[in-house]
Design a protein around this nucleic acid. Structure first.
Lengths: 226, 226
DNA sequence: TCTGTTTCTGACCATATGGTCAAGACTATG
DNA sequence: CATAGTCTTGACCATATGGTCAGAAACAGA
C-alpha cells in the first residue's frame, strides 16, 4: 500500500528530526564539543597555536586524544572553531554601542562591556590577539567583511556625534583602536599587570578602578562630560 | 731569561685583546649573531615560539641549521636573547620620560617614542606581547625586577605631577597601561589596522595622525593642555 | 533479543623537529 | 709550511606530534 509506505517514510523523517530519541545523543555530542572547545581555548591561549598539542588539549578535556579527533578532525578545524566563537562574543559586546543616545552612554557602556569580556574571557582574548598578531591566517575573511562593516558603521555613528557637537572632533578609527587596545590589554597582558600588582590578581575593587580610569581618561579625552 | 718570558706573555696577552688579529673573527661572530637574531625575531614574531622552527630561522638567516646551532646552542637560548634585546629597546624609550619638566613634555615624548618603536620594531613588539601573553615563562625575572622598579619610579613621577597640580588626579598605573597598550597596539595589531585601512599599510601622514590622536586624547584625558 | 548507528579508544604510522657530531674549510700566527 | 683555533656543514638520531584505523562498547529502535 502506498499509503502505509508514505506514512512510514513520514514517521521516519519525523523521528529523525524529533527531539525524543536523538536528544541524548545530540546532547552528548554538543556536551563533548563544548568541553573540548573550552579546553582548546585554554590551551591555545597558553601555548599558542604552534605550541598547543592535541594531546594536551585532550588531557585538559579529560578525553583520549583519538576521541578529540572524533569530534574535530584536525587541529586547525578545532582552532578555527575556537577563534570563531570568540569573534562572536566580541561582536555581541558591540551592541552596547548601538542603542545609545550619545557618546557618554554609548562609549561608556562599550568600554564597560569590553572590560567585562577581558575579565571573564581572558583566554579568548589572547587567542584572538595571537591570531591577529600572526597575520590572521585563519579568520582573515572575517576581518575583511564583518569587522570592516562593523567598524565603518561605528565610525559613522561617532562622526554623527561629532557633528552634533556631542564630543570633540577626533579621528573615530584611532579612538576605536584606543578602546580596543586598552580594554583588551587587561586580558592579553593580565600576567604583566598581575606582576606589577605584587603578583596578585586584580581584586573586585581594582577592576572597578581600572574601568573607571579607562572611562575617565577616554571620555574626558574626547570632550565628553562624565 | 725571565724578562723575555714575561715579555712574550705580555705580548701574547696583548695580542689576544688587541683589535688587530681577532677583529675579523670577532666581527664575523658578531655579524652572524646579528643576522641570526634578526631572522629569529622575525620568525618568532610571525610563528610564535612553538610555531617557529630552527630550520626556518636558518633559512631566513641564509645559513645551514647546524650553523645556527653553532652560535645559539638551543632554540630557547636564541629566543631568550631576542626577547632580552627587545626589552632593552623598550626601556630605553622610557628615557623620554626622565628629562621632562612636566606631563605635557614627558608623557607626550614618551608616547611619541613608543609609537616610533611600534613603527620601526613591530616584530619585536609582537615577540614581547607573545611572551607576556603566555605568562612570561622566559623573562619573568625581568618583569619582577627591572619592570617593577621602572614602573614604580614612573608612578612616583606622575604622582608628583599630580600633586603639583600639573595634571588631573588619575591612577598612574592605569595611565601607564593605557599608554603601553595603545602604542603597542599599532605594532601588535598592525595587520588588523591595515585590513581596516583598505588593506594598505599606514602612510607617513596616517602615522602622524595616529600619534596626534593618541596624544590628543590621552593628554586631554588627564587634564593637560597641549 | 537483534540490528544499525554513534561513540570511544589503544595501538599504530609517517613526518617533522631540536639537537648532535665528526670531518672538513678557513684564518692567523710562528 | 705547520700548527692551533674558529667556523661550516651534511648526515644522522631520538623524540614528539598530528592524524589514522580497526574494533570494542554503548545506545536506540523494532
Amino acid at each position: 500500500m502506498p499509503v502505509d509506505h508514505s506514512v512510514k517514510k513520514f514517521l521516519k523523517a519525523l523521528r529523525m528530526k524529533s527531539n525524543a530519541a536523538p536528544i541524548r545523543k545530540q546532547n552528548k555530542r554538543r556536551e563533548n564539543e563544548v568541553i573540548i572547545l573550552k579546553a582548546a581555548e585554554k590551551v591555545f591561549a597558553e601555548e599558542g597555536f604552534g605550541g598547543a598539542t592535541m594531546q594536551l588539549i585532550a588531557d585538559v578535556a579529560g578525553l583520549p586524544k583519538a576521541n578529540v579527533h572524533y569530534y574535530f578532525s584536525t587541529k586547525e578545524s578545532l582552532y578555527r572553531q575556537v577563534v570563531s566563537n570568540i569573534f562572536d562574543v566580541w561582536l555581541q559586546a558591540a551592541d552596547s554601542f548601538e542603542e545609545a543616545a550619545g557618546p557618554a552612554d554609548g562609549i561608556g557602556a562599550y568600554i564597560d562591556a569590553k572590560m567585562e569580556i577581558s575579565r571573564t574571557h581572558p583566554a579568548g582574548s589572547k587567542v584572538w590577539a595571537s591570531e591577529v598578531m600572526h597575520g590572521a591566517p585563519i579568520i582573515q575573511d572575517y576581518l575583511e567583511t564583518t569587522l570592516v562593516e562593523w567598524t565603518n558603521s561605528r565610525v559613522t555613528a561617532i562622526n554623527a556625534w561629532i557633528e552634533a557637537g556631542l564630543m570633540d572632533p577626533v579621528n573615530p578609527r584611532h579612538l576605536l583602536y584606543m578602546i580596543w587596545s586598552t580594554t583588551q590589554h587587561y586580558a592579553d597582558f593580565g600576567h604583566q599587570i598581575q606582576t606589577l600588582n605584587n603578583s596578585a590578581p586584580l581584586t573586585e575593587d581594582q577592576w572597578d578602578a581600572a574601568k573607571a580610569s579607562v572611562k575617565q581618561i577616554i571620555l574626558k579625552g574626547i570632550g565628553v562630560a562624565i
